[in-house]
């Protein structure tokens, strides 16, 4: 039932309008996307920087897995019309009592395994949608997903790490580093949160942390109890090296930075110090719910997140989408929010 217009990336930098018949609206919710946000992963598809095999396999595909929308019709009665909802990109197809939904190999993910949110309407099951407060800042809410990824990583950290958390270090002065250190400051007010980065102008935005270091100006005697690696790319190499070097024994190292390269790590020192390395990726429905609770309880968090919105671009035609991706690519920090008016 229903023809839906889907705006797919067909090859790097080229979007096309395509039409799909939605087979059945039974037990589905129809959401009109209103605010979307570009992620690095989208940018890699757009720039064609994934390997050709991956591009060939995944495209054509609608990009964007961070976004919110307005419920226009709900066959399930879960939502009211015009409810504002965050859309969860992770889509599990099975239940597992041990493995979380975002780590199940069978789970599908929007704008990775199937179409993302660049559509006239997103048709979703009700459990992949989470209601947002009516008066929420919609531009910030557009990247609820990104915040929920950090919330998820911090939850894993809470359950895995030992109790001594005097000083926690976050490596990476990009969006993930910003959001993660902001959440850590909020959730661990007694811990000293320290950020390690490269760019002065980015680091100047981290006013809420206890200390800021450039990675080549770290004092010799500085120690940390736990670390979050939010660097990614080839930079992961030097970041993990530095972390292993200055972390206290039995500390945890959360890996959040995505790298296209195999990263060599000093296993001898991991053994000697008894370190825990663990990966964190994506998020689940529970993480979304927790993120929205944090938004509601801590309005200050929202205003800090407003600070990293770099571009807000209204999308009325396909050219605007290209413009938004180019602008996002040329900004070295911050989020690009798309007001979806296509």
């Amino acid at each position: 039932m229903m023809i839906n217009t889907i705006y797919r990336l067909v090859s790097p930098k080229l979007f096309e309008e395509t039409y799909d018949e939605v087979p059945d609206l039974k037990n589905q919710v129809i959401v009109r996307p209103t605010h979307l946000s570009i992620c690095q992963a989208d940018q890699r598809y757009y720039q064609g920087s994934r390997d050709p095999e991956t591009l060939g396999e995944k495209l054509p595909m609608a990009l964007i897995h961070e976004g919110i929308g307005k419920v226009v019709k709900d066959d399930t009665g879960t939502f009211k019309n015009n409810d504002i909802v965050a859309m969860i990109p992770n889509t599990p197809v099975e239940n597992d009592e041990v493995i979380a939904e975002n780590y199940l190999r069978s789970s599908k993910f929007r704008a990775s395994g199937f179409d993302g949110f660049m559509q006239d309407y997103v048709v979703s099951t009700p459990e992949r949608l989470v209601k947002l407060p009516k008066d929420i800042n919609k531009e910030v809410a557009s990247f609820t997903e990104l915040v929920s990824v950090s919330v998820h990583a911090i939850n894993r950290f809470s359950s895995i790490s030992h109790k001594r958390k005097n000083r926690i270090g976050v490596w990476g002065d990009g969006n993930v580093g910003y959001i993660t250190s902001l959440l850590l400051k909020l959730l661990y007010p007694k811990s000293e949160i320290v950020i390690f980065g490269v760019h002065d102008e980015k680091l100047s935005l981290f006013g809420f942390v206890d200390e800021v270091f450039k990675i080549n100006e770290v004092p010799n005697n500085l120690c940390i109890d736990h670390a979050f690696e939010c660097v990614g790319g080839i930079g992961s190499l030097s970041a993990t090296e530095q972390i292993i070097d200055i972390i206290n024994p039995e500390g945890t190292i959360s890996l959040l930075g995505v790298s296209e390269y195999p990263i060599a790590i000093n296993t001898r020192m991991i053994l000697e110090k008894g370190l825990y390395f663990f990966g964190s990726s994506r998020s689940s429905r529970a993480d979304f719910l927790e993120t929205i609770q944090i938004f509601e309880r801590h309005p200050r968090m929202i205003s800090y997140l407003e600070n990293i919105i770099n571009n807000t671009i209204r999308i009325k035609d396909l050219k605007d989408i290209n413009k938004a991706f180019e602008k996002d690519f040329n900004s070295n920090f911050g989020k690009t929010v798309l007001i979806w008016d296509k």
Binding site: M1, M2, I3, E21, I30, V72, K73, N81, N82, Y121
Partner: peptide, 17 residues
């Protein structure tokens, strides 16, 4: 596709509350 043109058109208005 599988449905009359008219139905496709009506649906676009039907889902708009």
């Amino acid at each position: 596709g599988d449905k009359p043109i008219l139905i496709h058109t009506i649906e676009k208005f039907y889902i708009n509350n």
